[in-house]
Amino acid sequence: MREMINMIVVLTVLTTFSGGLLAAVKSKTEVQIENQVLKFQKAPAIKGIFPETTNDPLAERFNVKNENMELQVFPGKLPDGSKAVAFETSGTGFGGAVGLMVGINLDKDTIIGVRVTTHSETPGIGSRAKDDPAFVSQFSGKGMDTNFGVKADGGAIDAMSGATVTSKAVSLAATQAKEIYQKLKPEIVKQMN
């Protein structure tokens, strides 16, 4: 019996201690981690979508409430004076999540460009979309009334050959972005001014 209690006490103390330690490390590194994610995953994607802006989309980012989730929005002012936003969505089709940064021109309601943000360790998934500029450039210039499904599903997007599944996940993410944009546009415009 004494041995039993001893065992339970040691295990409890140990796990409590480790939980506490981890919580402390987590809270110390939280801000830094967020900065790193911005710098290494989001910044390159935004740079790819808005090669030239008159402002700093990263510094001027703001959050918009979408149902119970906070959506991070990056505003961009283009050299020709029009306003644009970029935000990230994900296509959780089969093959796992593919994160997609979508840039939309607020004045024309058209897509400026999309970039895949997820870095997946599973070879093949997601990485193809990153390496294949012809695929992602199909989205550029398309209006908000376009069906972003792949052609096999009656949409307007040519799937990458040999990577149908990834193509579907990307088009799913684009469709989601369209829905979010249509729902939240008034809110986004309000916050940008």
């Binding site: 089969f94 093959g95 796992g96 360790e121 599973t122």
Partner: peptide, 12 residues
Amino acid sequence: LINIKEEYTFVE
């Protein structure tokens, strides 16, 4: 860990 990372549903 892969299941969680790839955001699979329960059945998947």
